[in-house]
């Protein structure tokens, strides 16, 4: 890898795309390992971009239509908006819960709670989220917070009938749907859009917990919703690696998701790393991990043991193992 002096020597040529490919790749590598200098490069790239601003020309009129044709062909699968993803998973769970007999609500689910208690856990989460959307208070929202508010909810609603609890949960979720579109502030340090995707993810996960406890078949989320969840999980990869002390600064891997949502992702193996346009310059990934998207999401939610995750690995097996082991680092109850 180049050193700081060589980086400084090449930085302007790099920002102007005036380096040889091997030098540009060396700078890319340096940036992956030194996120603290990214702002400096961005400043020079910004200046370079403005150089081109005085050249603005109206493109021929047919370019717009051709672009849309290519866009439609390029991405037939689209991600649901965070609010839509959340709303659709809430709706799916509401339908499933409507068919649960109160006696069956005492069945034990994956995390040791009964179905009824799991609904109260969801109620606690949606109520807390609605509060945070109105008046942010939490600095972060982690498993400890979830456990505390769930215990409080369980204590307060010990006698609440199952379908009454479902109704309360649904009302809280609807409040979130009404409030979220108008919120600009961060919620527990996250963008509201990300929080909604997390809630959609958790709603689906617990929906699946309930389905399994009842011994029922179920269907996965819609492709668009699944894509939004998969994308969120990919953006989380550097952070789950860091949280489990498995980060590898300066390296990157490729994740290929198959099945309902086929997609390919380039993920940095440590936080704070920029996504560089023109990633061709980054060279070969240290590992390529290919997994089914549903399996991956279930692993991310800590609902599938690492050893059960069917996967194909090219490159460094240790990196692939770390990705699989670290995936559920942020999974809670």
């Amino acid at each position: 890898m180049i050193n700081r002096e060589e980086f400084e020597d090449l930085i302007a040529a790099y920002a102007l795309d005036a380096c040889d490919p091997d030098e540009a790749a060396a700078i890319d590598e340096f940036l992956l390992a030194h996120p603290e200098v990214v702002a400096e490069v961005e400043q020079l790239r910004g200046a370079a971009a403005w150089l081109g601003a005085s050249e603005a020309l109206t493109p021929p009129s047919d370019v717009r239509g051709a672009l849309l044709d290519r866009a439609r062909a390029a991405r037939p699968g689209e991600a649901a908006s965070p609010l839509d993803a959340y709303g659709r998973e809430v709706d799916r769970l509401a339908v499933a819960l409507a068919g649960v007999e109160p006696a069956d609500a005492e069945r034990i689910t994956h995390n040791g709670l009964t179905i009824r208690e799991l609904v109260l856990h969801l109620l606690a989460a949606e109520r807390k989220l609605a509060e945070e959307l109105v008046q942010p208070q939490l600095a972060q929202w982690d498993d400890a917070v979830m456990r505390t508010i769930t215990e409080t909810e369980l204590a307060e609603h010990r006698e609440l009938a199952f379908h009454a609890a479902v109704g309360e949960w649904r009302a809280a979720a609807d409040a979130v749907r009404r409030l979220a579109p108008n919120v600009e502030h961060a919620v527990a340090g996250r963008r509201p859009a990300d929080v909604l995707v997390i809630r959609a993810f958790e709603t689906w996960t617990h929906h699946d917990d309930i389905r399994r406890a009842l011994g029922r078949d179920g269907s996965p989320p819609a492709r668009e919703v699944l894509r939004a969840m998969a994308e969120f999980s990919m953006r989380s990869v550097p952070w789950v690696l860091a949280a489990t002390n498995r980060q590898r600064p300066g390296q990157w891997a490729r994740l290929r998701l198959t099945g309902l949502v086929e997609s390919e992702w380039t993920v940095a193996l440590a936080p704070g790393v920029p996504l560089v346009p023109g990633q061709r310059d980054l060279g070969a990934p240290v590992a390529t991990l290919t997994v089914d998207v549903i399996d991956w999401c279930r692993r991310f939610a800590d609902r599938m043991p690492a050893e059960q995750l069917v996967r194909q690995v090219e490159g460094d097996q240790g990196v692939a193992d770390d990705l699989v082991l670290a995936a559920p680092a942020f999974a809670g109850l």
Binding site: E42, R45, G46, A48, A49, G52, P274, P277, Q279
Partner: peptide, 21 residues
């Protein structure tokens, strides 16, 4: 779209960099 990170830089810079490259 995830290649564009609004916290890192502006969209004009991103598009200008891509166009130039």
């Amino acid at each position: 779209p995830e290649l564009f990170d609004p916290e890192r830089g502006r969209l004009r810079t991103f598009l200008g960099t891509l166009s130039h490259r």
